[in-house]
Amino acid sequence: MIRVELVKLFRRPRTWISLVLTCALPFIVAIFITITHLAPPPGQGSAFLSAVLQDGELYPAAALALVLPVFLPVAVAVVAGDSIAGEAAGGTLRYLLVRPVGRTRLLVAKLIAVTAYVLSVVLAVTFTAYATGVFLLGPSRAAAVGQAPGGTGGLPGGGPGIAGQAPTAGQAAGGAVTSLSGAPLSLLQLTERIGGAIAFITVSMLGVAAIALFLSTITDSALGSALGALAALVASEILVALNAATVVQPYLPTRYWLAWIDFFRQPVFWRDIQRGFGIQAVYVVVFLAAAWANFSTKDITR
């Protein structure tokens, strides 16, 4: 069944189109930076972008930071939201179930397919960005990760945050980047840290996928469940940026989304990374349980 789901996923044109588009954005950004040599000043724009002119090998991290806020969640929500609702709307769900495929088994297979999709997108972005970085921006010159151009020292308090996540990155950035700026990372270390970042981002996206999958068992509209999941993320982003909502912030799904940046500090700043893994695990478990409870008792009338 898992193999069947993977075949269905990867024989679908949409899968490849979204993959290519997600990889294309960092590529386009890299072209502009190469031509103009105008990286955003430190502390502004997307994370790591200010550093990539010095160090092309760091471009995978910059690319992940570029696609994380919008591209990745949209792609994941669409694929996960489609998983059950799309089959229901197309009528194929009932034929799978009378084949018979157990409902729990189907849900698990869908989850694994979505995970495979998330991993492929993240890995594809990483590898294309590495190639782009090395060939377009050139390999490491300063060999100092996070070194700000012009030797102005560490990133100021604003940090490499994107609007909405500024608190996450900001807090940590203020203290950590300075020490990081002087410490060179070997290629092995860089690889390890990118691996950690990939794992973290994948788990974060699984949180999104779990929400979309749950909604997908409720409605027969693939679009509805994808948009529902995105609406939840937007709401979370708004609350994360809202000082008045400090009480709930540690429990919001997007609160620690950018914590993977901490993998690139020397030493790795673990606190937010651990919290991020924890909160995403809770979201995944809760929403998958809800999806299972709903789907396994549901009358299939489509």
Binding site: K8, R11, R12, P13, G90, G91, T92, R94, Y95, V98
Partner: peptide, 13 residues
């Protein structure tokens, strides 16, 4: 059991 339930359904692509 072989079944056909209302309309047939297949993955169109």
């Amino acid at each position: 059991v072989g079944a056909l339930i209302e309309e047939p359904a297949a993955y169109p692509h």
